[in-house]
C-alpha cells in the first residue's frame, strides 16, 4: 500500500515537472521585455551601425559614434562595424552604404589606437 502511494506521488511530481516545463518555456516564458540591443537580429544591428555611420558622416565625431556602438558591443565598438561590413558585402549593400561603414570602421580603428598621454 505504501509503495503504491510512493509510486503515484513520484508520478504526480513528474507530471507537475513536465507541465511546469511546458508552461514555463512555451506557455508563459519570461517576457522579452529585457531584450537589449545586442539581441535583435543581426540585420537590425547592422542597420543600427549604418545609422551610426550616417550620423558620423555629418558629425565627424568618433567619440560619439563609439558611444553609440558600445550599445552593441560594450567592449569593442569596432567589432559591430566589421560585422556590418561583412554582412553588407554579403547582402549587396550599395557602395554608398559600404563606404559609409568603411569610413566609420577606420575612424573607430584610429579612435581606439589614439595613444593615451600619461602624466608622469
Amino acid at each position: 500500500m505504501r509503495q503504491t502511494r510512493v509510486f503515484w506521488f513520484i508520478i504526480c511530481i513528474l507530471i507537475g515537472l513536465i507541465a511546469g516545463l511546458i508552461y514555463g518555456w512555451w506557455g508563459n516564458p519570461t517576457l522579452p521585455a529585457k531584450t537589449n540591443l545586442p539581441t535583435p537580429r543581426t540585420d537590425y544591428n547592422n542597420n543600427y551601425v549604418l545609422m551610426t555611420a550616417e550620423v558620423f558622416r555629418v558629425e565627424k565625431d568618433p567619440a560619439s559614434a563609439a558611444v553609440r556602438l558600445l550599445a552593441l558591443d560594450p567592449h569593442d565598438p569596432l567589432r559591430p562595424v566589421q560585422e556590418a561590413i561583412l554582412t553588407a558585402q554579403e547582402n549587396g549593400y550599395n557602395n554608398t552604404d559600404i563606404t559609409l561603414l568603411a569610413d566609420l570602421a577606420s575612424a573607430m580603428l584610429s579612435w581606439q589606437t589614439v595613444p593615451t598621454v600619461v602624466n608622469r
Partner: peptide, 25 residues
C-alpha cells in the same frame, strides 16, 4: 506531488534557465 513538480519546473524555467531571446525584432 503535482505542486512540488510544478513549482520546481517553474523555478527552473523562469529563474534558472529562462528562455533566451535572440534574433528578435
Amino acid at each position: 506531488g503535482l505542486l512540488v513538480g510544478l513549482t520546481a519546473a517553474l523555478v527552473y524555467t523562469w529563474l534558472i534557465a529562462p528562455v533566451k531571446y535572440s534574433g528578435t525584432s
